[in-house]
Simulated scan of single mutants.
Amino acid sequence: MQKQQGFTLIELVVVIIILGILAVTAAPKFMNLQGDAYQSTLSGLKASLQGANTLVYSKAAIAGDEKDADTTVQISSDSSDTAKITYGYLQNDATSLGDMLQIDTASDWTIVAGADLTKATVLYQTSSPYAAVGTGTPVTPAVDCHLEYTPATSTTLPIYTLKTDGC
């Protein structure tokens, strides 16, 4: 008679327990993929905004408008492509930012413009946790999953602030 070989019930239980411990340890590292995607997208948007501002400042400097507090600069050879600038950099209005970044503000992105030329403008993805707050205006406690753009002043360069703690 042949002796059958296999695993005992205790061996199987031990393997299942070990796999459970590994799953509990490794799963949290893969659970926040959506938050990482929001953070990466905001980082890309920040880099795009910085690049756009570099180009706009170059155009403003060529036109001699880099020291003007509130003017427009022609962006392309088409005379209708203009952007509002403040001290050579993009203003914080939704139209200029949306046009220069070429983002879809109708469905994908929301831009909440600053109250005046010195206030930060908030840019966030419409599907992000920031949008879940409702209007997109800052709340307490803050839901940080957005980019804040503060335009240049006569003494400072533009400020780009990523808020990604709540993504």
Results as ranks from 00 to 15, higher is better:
150 T>H: 12
146 H>Y: 13
124 Y>Q: 06
156 T>F: 13
123 L>N: 01
157 L>S: 06
118 T>K: 10
135 T>I: 13
154 S>C: 01
153 T>P: 00
157 L>K: 07
117 L>A: 14
122 V>P: 04
156 T>N: 14
161 T>P: 00
123 L>C: 02
124 Y>V: 05
130 Y>N: 07
130 Y>I: 04
158 P>E: 01
151 P>Q: 08
142 A>M: 12
129 P>G: 10
135 T>N: 14
116 D>P: 00
130 Y>V: 04
119 K>G: 04
153 T>H: 04
150 T>W: 11
155 T>C: 07
153 T>R: 02
129 P>F: 12
140 T>H: 09
144 D>E: 13
157 L>P: 00
134 G>W: 09
138 P>G: 15
156 T>H: 12
162 L>D: 02
124 Y>R: 03
119 K>C: 05
145 C>I: 06
153 T>A: 04
130 Y>Q: 08
152 A>L: 05
124 Y>E: 06
158 P>D: 01
130 Y>E: 09
128 S>Q: 07
161 T>C: 04
151 P>T: 02
146 H>E: 15
137 T>M: 15
124 Y>S: 06
138 P>L: 15
144 D>M: 09
121 T>C: 11
145 C>H: 03
157 L>N: 06
155 T>A: 09
160 Y>S: 00
122 V>R: 10
160 Y>C: 00
161 T>N: 07
145 C>T: 05
129 P>L: 15
138 P>S: 15
153 T>G: 03
155 T>M: 09
118 T>W: 08
126 T>M: 12
160 Y>D: 00
147 L>A: 06
158 P>C: 02
140 T>R: 12
138 P>F: 14
154 S>M: 03
160 Y>E: 00
163 K>S: 08
155 T>V: 10
130 Y>K: 09
135 T>K: 13
127 S>T: 09
117 L>N: 12
158 P>T: 00
133 V>T: 12
119 K>N: 06
129 P>K: 07
139 V>H: 13
137 T>Q: 15
144 D>S: 10
130 Y>L: 11
163 K>D: 08
161 T>I: 01
148 E>N: 06
115 A>N: 14
153 T>C: 04
146 H>S: 15
138 P>W: 13
162 L>N: 01
124 Y>G: 04
141 P>H: 10
140 T>W: 11
157 L>A: 07
143 V>A: 08
117 L>G: 09
132 A>N: 14
153 T>D: 06
147 L>H: 00
138 P>R: 12
125 Q>A: 09
118 T>S: 11
150 T>D: 14
140 T>G: 09
147 L>E: 02
128 S>K: 03
134 G>Y: 09
118 T>A: 11
117 L>C: 11
146 H>P: 07
162 L>W: 00
127 S>V: 13
154 S>K: 04
121 T>Y: 05
161 T>D: 08
147 L>V: 03
149 Y>L: 10
149 Y>M: 10
146 H>W: 11
119 K>S: 08
144 D>Q: 11
129 P>S: 11
131 A>W: 05
124 Y>N: 03
124 Y>M: 08
125 Q>F: 04
128 S>E: 08
143 V>Q: 07
117 L>R: 12
155 T>G: 05
154 S>F: 02
115 A>C: 13
151 P>C: 10
133 V>N: 15
154 S>D: 08
142 A>I: 08
116 D>L: 02
161 T>R: 04
148 E>F: 02
144 D>P: 01
152 A>K: 00
140 T>N: 12
